[in-house]
């Protein structure tokens, strides 16, 4: 494949609206995807896939603001609703109908909790969109790069149990022609990474183990080449867990979007 080094300019809603255009889908980046250095890589990988697939998309850019998920789970309903009303106003002003996001927490909030406050959109998790793009042939992964590699998928709670999406990420991984090896605690029985419910932002309560260490231990027992996930917070937790066991050299923690971008040589 020829290597071109085109710079991708990510279109914002403000620019599109100024030109009187509408994207087919809005990419909600989320706070982690915008600011966290590791998660930014997921965001870029996903943008490259959207570009390759020829999707007409846009982002809110600096007009995006926290969905309020961590505030809501931490009991601060005021702050959550302030954020929600602001975001809904922005989204509704632009007439947004369809949203994709790479964060299961944003996904859940936008899909399930914004409708009560007047924000009604069709919301997809990026693994669902990837599955669709692959099924429709808009992107094609030729196995090879990952063949013979062992991948295990860690279910993000807010994608799996929280919203019943178990198969989309798996069907995407299966396209990679690699071995998908399941942990004992997977799908409905998936074990939390330890970040949810605003735990990400506070010290853990006294205990005898970190949740992410318990989970990473389970994943590493399979001796995988890659621990795949679909959530920027799980990414942080699992990456820290792998570091805890000094396994960074052998085991990569990757988002499903990164795996696909990698397979596409993007």
């Amino acid at each position: 494949m020829e290597i071109n080094r085109d710079k991708i300019t990510v279109p914002t809603m403000a620019e599109m609206a100024a030109k009187g255009e509408m994207p087919d889908i809005l990419f909600w980046v989320g706070c982690a995807g915008s600011f966290d250095e590791r998660a930014q890589k997921i965001t870029r990988a996903f943008v490259k896939i959207l570009y390759r697939a020829g999707i007409k998309y846009a982002v809110l850019g600096t007009e995006e603001s926290c969905t309020g998920d961590p505030a809501k789970r931490a009991g601060n309903e005021f702050l959550f609703q302030m954020q929600a009303f602001m975001n809904i106003q922005t989204l509704n002003n632009y007439g947004i109908k369809k949203i994709v996001t790479a964060c299961p927490h944003c996904f859940n909030t936008l899909k399930n909790e914004y409708p009560d406050l007047g924000g009604k959109y069709e919301v997809m998790h990026h693994t669902q969109l990837l599955q669709q793009l692959l099924d429709e042939g808009k992107i094609k992964v030729e196995g090879g790069k990952f063949s013979g590699k062992k991948i295990t998928f860690h279910d993000p709670c807010y994608l799996g149990r929280g919203n019943g999406v178990y198969e989309a990420p798996r069907s995407v991984i299966e396209k990679l022609d690699s071995e998908l090896s399941e942990m004992k605690r997977s799908r409905q029985r998936g074990f939390c990474c330890g970040a949810g419910g605003a735990q990400m932002f506070k010290d853990a309560e006294p205990g005898n183990k970190e949740v992410n260490v318990e989970r990473t231990e389970e994943a590493l027992a399979l001796k995988p080449d890659v621990i795949a996930t679909g959530c920027p917070f799980c990414m942080t937790m699992m990456t820290d867990g792998v570091k805890h066991f000094d396994k960074e050299a052998e085991v990569k923690v990757q988002d499903v979007a990164e795996l696909i971008a990698n397979a596409l040589d993007l």
Binding site: M1, E2, I3, N4, R5, D6, K7, I8, T9, V10, T12, V29, C31, G33, S34, F35, D36, Q40, T43, R44, V47, K48, Y51, R52, V59, G61, T62, E64, S65, C66, G68, P70, A71, L79, M82, Q83, M200, F201, D265, L266
Partner: peptide, 25 residues
């Protein structure tokens, strides 16, 4: 979140910086 619109202490203006250097291929 109240001040920056994000759970971390980053400024709003920097929210879109991730997009400044993306090279296809």
């Amino acid at each position: 979140i109240e001040n920056n619109g994000a759970p971390w202490a980053f400024s709003r203006e920097d929210r879109f910086n991730w997009a400044s250097e993306i090279y296809y291929g």
